[in-house]
Amino acid sequence: MNSSGHAQDPNWVLVFACWLIASISTLGSLFFSEVMGFQPCVLCWYQRIAMYPLVLILPAGLFPLDRNIVRYALPLSLTGALIAGFHLLLVAGFIPESIKPCIQGVPCTEVQIEWFGFVTIPLLSGLSFLVISALLILTYRRSSK
C-alpha cells in the first residue's frame, strides 16, 4: 500500500482512526475554551500539550504508512492518559487537596461540564488518550507479525 492507495489496509485505518480521535479531541477542547468560554486549568493544558501534536504527527505516518509512527506518537498518548488519570483522581477526591498542582486561576477540581451525570472533560480526555494508545499498540503488534 502506498501513499495514494485505497483506504483498506487495516493498519492504515487504525492510525487514521487515532488521527480522527485526536482531531476531534483537539477541536472539542478548543470548543470548550474558545466558544463556550471555559478557562482551561493547568492540568487541562498539560493534556493539551500531549494531544495537539498528535494531530500533526499522525498524518506524517499515514503518507506513506510508517509503523514507526507508533514509536513517536505512543509516548505522547500515554503521557496524556497518565495526566488525565491524575486529573480524574483529583476531581474524584482520591488525591488530597494538599498536592493539588494549581494554586491560582481555575482550580482543576472544578467540574465544568457533567453530561449524563458522569461525563466530565478529563474523562473525555482520558478516554481519547486510552483509545489512541490502544489502537497504536494494536497497529504495532499487527505490523510486527
Binding site: 501513499s3 495514494s4 492507495g5 485505497h6 483506504a7 492504515w12 487514521f16 488521527w19 480522527l20 482531531s23 476531534i24 477541536l27 498524518p59 499515514l62 503518507f63
Partner: peptide, 15 residues
Amino acid sequence: MKQKHLVIFSAIFLL
C-alpha cells in the same frame, strides 16, 4: 476512497 482524499475530507468536515 483514496487515503489522501479521506484525510482531507475528514479534516474539512471536522472544521
